[in-house]
Simulated scan of single mutants.
Amino acid sequence: MARVLMVVLITLAMTGCASKVVTDYNSSVVFGNYSSWAFAPDAGSASFISLDGNRVRKAVEREFTRKAMRKVDVPEADLLVNWRIVEQERLEQSGLGLGFGFGTGNFGWGLSTPPPVREVTEGKLVVELADQSSEEVVWRAASRRYLNESQSPETRRKLIDEVVAEMFKKYPPGLEGK
């Protein structure tokens, strides 16, 4: 029993330490050469900016300001920022199944019903930075945490702020923890 408890505690500790975002980047790029940025004309890829879109834009602007990067018009930008919320469907079990059984000795019968299942739509935030001159993505971050339709506006704002802040802790690459 003590071993099982220890394994559970270690697993929980490791899960808590796991990064909530993943990043990728072009290792041949000198990120110190970038000093200005703008949102790509198709950032968010919608005909209008959604409520979450406004939250993402504000969070990205805040993080670039912290990095001392200047926001400029698209033609003058070194980096173009694109972002999107990728929707994913998953099944979620809620509650517990019910069951009963009977038996004697080494033999018994049981009957149970599975817990109710419902389909949940979630959104994963992806942010990409593209070099304006080469039009190639040079840095990408994706969230491992999800937005879902049952979250309150305040919860959504806090989650977006936290995720974007964690993404930009890893920008520019190689400076994490410094």
Score class of each variant (00 low, 15 high):
3 R>D: 11
7 V>C: 09
9 L>K: 08
10 I>T: 14
10 I>Q: 12
12 L>R: 12
15 T>K: 14
18 A>Y: 10
23 T>E: 06
24 D>M: 06
25 Y>Q: 02
30 V>Q: 10
31 F>P: 00
31 F>K: 01
34 Y>G: 12
37 W>P: 02
43 A>T: 05
45 S>M: 09
45 S>T: 07
46 A>S: 08
47 S>K: 09
48 F>I: 10
56 V>D: 09
63 E>A: 11
66 R>M: 13
76 E>Q: 13
87 E>I: 06
89 E>Y: 10
94 S>L: 13
94 S>A: 13
98 L>K: 05
111 L>V: 12
114 P>E: 15
118 R>Q: 15
119 E>Q: 14
121 T>E: 12
121 T>A: 11
125 L>K: 05
126 V>D: 03
126 V>F: 03
133 S>Q: 03
134 S>I: 00
134 S>Q: 01
136 E>K: 04
136 E>W: 00
137 V>T: 04
137 V>N: 02
140 R>M: 01
141 A>C: 03
143 S>C: 08
148 N>K: 06
148 N>L: 07
153 P>T: 08
155 T>E: 04
158 K>S: 02
162 E>P: 02
162 E>S: 09
166 E>P: 01
166 E>K: 06
170 K>D: 00
173 P>G: 00
173 P>F: 00
175 L>D: 01
175 L>A: 03
176 E>F: 00
176 E>W: 00
176 E>M: 00
